[in-house]
Amino acid sequence: MNTDPVATHPDLQLITLDVNGERYDVVTEPRRTLVDVLRHELRLTGTHVGCEHGICGACTVLVDERPVRACLMFAAQAEGARIRTVESLADSDNRLSDLQRAFSEHHALQCGFCTPGFLMLAEGFLGERPEASKEEIREVVAANLCRCTGYQTIVEAIEACATARRGACVTPCIPDSPADKEH
């Protein structure tokens, strides 16, 4: 068959995906990236597209509980894996998770465009390394780009959430250095 990109109608493919615990069947071109299928076929638009070359991290989702770039993966490659997006974080009554609440409390988002990516990055990371130190968290936060916050409050929010989850602290808002919170 002629596969010239300009002259032929590309083949379609049935792709079955497990997203946030639901099964979806999609008939689409194999060249569709996972993020495009999530957003435009499944209409899960919480996952965003920022660069399509794997650097900004706005499209970060969990594949088998590990954070990955959904722009660097074809949807076809995700068959058989469990995918989780930002839409999975709040509970069935739309109550935000502790991680989401920590982001709000620490003003870790402004325009909110990068936020789903950071949330899923942190969700996957803390799931694997609940004991992570602030420096480890900072290194992981360096995986994604945010243009609004300067990152400090994102690191603080994730650390507060991790601390609270470990039960080492009753309130999740004690900053490292009180001086940093002077008004």
Binding site: G54, G57, V63, R66, R69, M73, G124, F125, V140, A143
Partner: peptide
């Protein structure tokens, strides 16, 4: 090597 979400894949 890159960042965590690159290293996972």
């Amino acid at each position: 090597i890159g960042h965590l979400p690159i290293r996972t894949r």
